[in-house]
């Protein structure tokens, strides 16, 4: 399930981040940050929609294109019926696909767009993801103001919207190949330890990617997983080296750990999560490093927990999925 691309390039990215991400170490790589969680809207859901709209507006401005100059928009978020994307993307682009891969959507959208572009079905696409700490708390956990003590293994949903424009026009950064993941069930069912739930999916996709391409981890300057947090990250490192003998100790990190300053920002516990967590790191910091040629080859493995509170209460496990995409500086 690995696809190679010859003419898919990254044209530009736009990243919007919330107040918690603003306090993190990657602040300077974001196009815009917000000081509160409402973004000037009157509810959290509407705030997420507004972030998407503003993000797309800035993207079109940066690209110098009109609203229907873009062929395809792929949107994804965590709300029911992916409603933040469907409301936020209204009026933009000639086609729209809404996808749900939980936190893996940031890479899944790029894979779908790349396949369309590679076979010349479209010439450009914008992949957009968003998540909001408060809307996902409300939907997946407790009311937002409810203070239930959480264990240290819990992760913190990142707030923001991030988009990336892929096209067939040559630029400095290209999409080199991608590996689609499959749904994994490892018998894990603790929603307060998503790193442990998602690590098997990351391991499976990484192994598949290395086997199908014949590469080893040192082929890449940096390998990133999406939002495993500080404990999930260690699980991946250990398991990959013990079971498959792949050494990830030198060039591997996790976006959830990079997005926040874990020593100072105690409220994020084990690290960030949510589709926008990996997107903010990749579309913001990693894209910047690739453009400046400080990094040459980067493998992004976005991990997603396909968590449905209803089914977990019905004693089902939490499934997970991970998709990988490799970016190269030219």
């Amino acid at each position: 399930m690995t696809f190679k691309y010859k003419n898919v390039y990254v044209e530009d990215t736009v990243t919007f981040a919330g107040p918690y991400e603003k306090k993190g170490p990657l602040k300077k790589y974001f196009d815009k940050t917000f000081n509160d969680l409402y973004f000037g809207a009157d509810s959290f859901e509407k705030a997420e929609i507004k972030a998407i709209r503003d993000n797309l507006n800035l993207m079109f401005k940066k690209l110098g294109k009109k609203k229907d100059d873009i062929d395809l928009i792929i949107g994804s978020d965590l709300l029911n019926q992916i409603s933040a994307s469907t409301y936020g993307c209204e009026g933009y682009g000639n086609g729209f696909i809404g996808i749900y891969g939980a936190c893996s959507s940031s890479v899944l959208g790029m894979i779908i767009a790349s396949n369309f572009i590679e076979y010349n079905q479209i010439s450009n696409a914008i992949c957009l993801v968003s998540s909001h700490n408060m809307t996902s708390e409300k939907q997946f956990r407790n009311p937002t103001e409810y203070g239930a003590p959480k264990p240290r293994s819990a992760t913190f949903t990142a707030t923001g919207a991030a988009s990336i424009c892929l096209s067939s026009q040559k630029t400095d950064v290209r999409v080199e190949c991608s590996t689609l993941g499959r749904i994994i069930d490892y018998g894990e069912n603790n929603p307060n330890d998503m790193g442990r739930v998602m690590a098997p999916a990351a391991i499976d996709t990484l192994r598949k990617h290395f086997e199908e391409t014949g590469r080893t981890p040192d082929y890449y300057d940096l390998i990133l997983t999406g939002d495993l947090g500080e404990y999930g990250k260690e699980i991946v490192k250990d398991y990959m080296s013990i079971k498959y003998n792949y050494d990830l100790s030198k060039n591997y990190n996790d976006c959830g750990v990079m997005l926040y300053d874990l020593t100072k920002q105690k409220e994020v516990l084990a690290g960030g999560s949510g589709p926008v967590c990996s997107a903010l790191v990749n579309y913001g910091y990693i894209y910047d490093q690739l453009k400046k040629k400080k990094l040459k080859r980067v493998l992004l493995v976005a991990t997603g927990a396909l968590f449905c509170p209803l089914l977990v209460y019905q004693k089902e496990n939490i499934n997970s999925i991970a998709h990988a995409i490799s970016l190269e500086a030219i």
Partner: peptide, 18 residues
């Protein structure tokens, strides 16, 4: 899927609660 190795590694990285 049951994987004893995974459970062992994951348990070793479980944060201790106070």
């Amino acid at each position: 899927m049951e994987d004893k190795l995974y459970k062992k590694i994951a348990d070793s990285h479980k944060p201790k609660e106070t």
